[in-house]
């Protein structure tokens, strides 16, 4: 299992960040407005804000760290992106080819280069679904820690597991995310995860091609049973208007997941760095369209 965890942990994406020209002074070189970075699936986009600011600081038309009247956010094809989900989860929900690596036999994954294009924009008001990006350096850390507290509560019925970590362990936990230290991350996350959870922390999102943006967090009870994905099909597809269960595939960490996998097993192998298991419902039509 550790091998699968390690592969998931090492997953990376090519991200192209384009910066809106309004950030830059007139006459700034165009190449400064584009940033190509390789980003782990298991991180937040805002962890790269210092890198972005640093890259364009000489050409900025204002000081973003002291800006009070403007808000910044990321967009993908004109759609605001919620930075509070891991980059890999955003990719799975927005980019059409995410599920094709395993479903298309004629294509070798190593020959496919996918690019996650995001656009950094600003405005006087923030889209309603987006959490503001603050200038404080530890915004992501604080948010992530609360996610883990919530996960701990769902798994154990209280947040004692994570709250009883020492200050050093808490710091080490976040540092393991930043420095990509799989060993430290596994060691500390194990302390929080029980062998018999009460519920499984799961977040289900719909792919953009479904035309509706639904994100749900159902309560999946684990008392006395270890259900498979098939057993919780109703909870998975209860994401509002999605009715036909046979018309989509389930994707987690960019991989198509079979219906008969045990849920807790799936959780332990595929959970994200914030402790949640993210599942994306991808319509089969968008999978087929990519390689037509």
């Amino acid at each position: 299992m550790n091998e699968i965890r390690q592969l998931v942990w090492n997953g990376e994406l090519n991200v192209l960040v384009s910066i809106d020209p309004s950030f830059l002074m007139k006459g700034s070189p165009k190449e400064m407005a584009v940033l190509r970075i390789r980003v782990p699936r298991e991180t937040y986009l805002i962890n790269y804000m210092p890198l972005i600011w640093n890259r364009i600081q000489d050409f900025l038309s204002f000081d973003p760290l002291n800006e009070k009247e403007k808000y910044f956010w990321f967009e993908h094809n004109g759609r605001p992106i919620r930075w509070n989900y891991p980059v890999g989860v955003l990719f799975d929900g927005l980019v059409a080819s995410s599920a094709t690596f395993v479903t298309s036999s004629g294509i070798h994954p190593e020959n496919v280069i996918t690019l996650f294009k995001v656009h950094l924009v600003m405005g006087k008001s923030l889209p309603s679904t987006v959490i503001p990006i603050l200038s404080s350096s530890n915004q992501a850390e604080k948010f992530w820690f609360h996610q883990w507290k919530q996960v701990c509560f769902i798994l154990n019925g209280s947040s004692k597991g994570i709250m009883s970590l020492s200050v050093n362990e808490s710091r080490k936990f976040w540092r393991s995310v930043i420095t990509r230290n799989f060993h430290d991350f596994t060691e500390i996350s194990k302390k929080i995860s029980p062998s018999r959870p009460r519920h499984v922390p799961i977040i289900i999102q719909t792919h953009k091609d479904l035309g509706i943006e639904v994100i749900s967090q159902p309560t999946i009870s684990m008392t006395g049973v270890n259900p498979t994905l098939r057993d919780i099909e109703q909870e998975v597809i209860s994401a509002k208007e999605i009715i036909d269960a046979g018309s989509y595939v389930i994707v987690s960490q960019g991989i198509e997941i079979p219906w008969d996998i045990a849920l807790f097993d799936l959780y332990l192998k595929f959970r994200s760095f914030d402790g949640f298991l993210y599942i994306t419902l991808v319509p089969k039509i968008s999978v087929a369209r990519t390689f037509r």
């Binding site: 919530q150 509560f153 967090q217 309560t219």
Partner: peptide, 21 residues
């Protein structure tokens, strides 16, 4: 904070929070 423990995200559904916590 929910249950004197964690801060949920503003996007989370109140009904789902209620069901879980």
């Amino acid at each position: 904070y929910i249950n004197n423990s964690f801060a949920p995200t503003p996007q989370q559904n109140v009904g789902e929070l209620w069901t879980q916590f």
